[in-house]
Amino acid sequence: MSIFSAHDLTISFGGIKALNHVSFEIEKGAVYSIIGPNGAGKTTIFNCISGLYAPDHGEIIFQDMDITNLAPYKIAGLGIARTFQNIELFSRMTTMENLMLGRHLHMKTGLWSGVTLFSSNSKVSREEIVHRERVEIIVDLLDLQSARDVFVGELPYGSQKLVELARALALEPKLLLLDEPSSGMNNEEKHDLFYWIKDIRNLFDVTILMIEHDMNMVRDISDKVLAINFGKKITAGTPDEVANHPEVLKAYLGEEDA
């Protein structure tokens, strides 16, 4: 059963077609990867899904609902969370606060009830505690204990990427979008990440859509792969099918002069 599908996605910026009639479909519980050279339009797909860009044409369906022109925060409310290629953390908040922000949609405290935080027994405090406990599970899973109370702006790059992943998980997404999760990581970190992504899929009942350059990782953990270039779909299929597709090879390795 497909949880997510995009049909005919098309968007252009100043005459350049960043996406040109791209369609694909994701099965529930799958790890689905998008590959393609730089500037192929991968992140543009993500931006369309999370509502940052409005596609010129086409529609995006999530759990049988058309989310094409919804505001980003409403899309998040339906259970789609994401990370960013160039890290968009709340740099002057601690790791813990970043993750608690991830719980924003699951918490209820508003302005008036927030004002009444005067004892550790108030409704507000109790809510904070409940959600802190949820967040701690994620902290433990991703080994972020030592970063807990550090301002994320001061963390090393690899840890920042993990905090971003943790923040997305805190939202309890049904669909998790990961934009180049392993970029800038060393081999050891990549190795850990690889197992964590598997764990996350198994533990959290989540579907993962991932943009990734590391072909080994893509082949190892993806159920399905979509290859695009110049905003157009080249092919989609199992990792091996895609990796051996002549057009994909051409896009990655270049064309040989005959």
Partner: peptide, 13 residues
């Protein structure tokens, strides 16, 4: 304040 784009995609109106 820190990143309005990330805030939006995390469900902050």
């Amino acid at each position: 304040r820190d990143s309005d784009i990330a805030a939006e995609t995390m469900g902050v109106n």
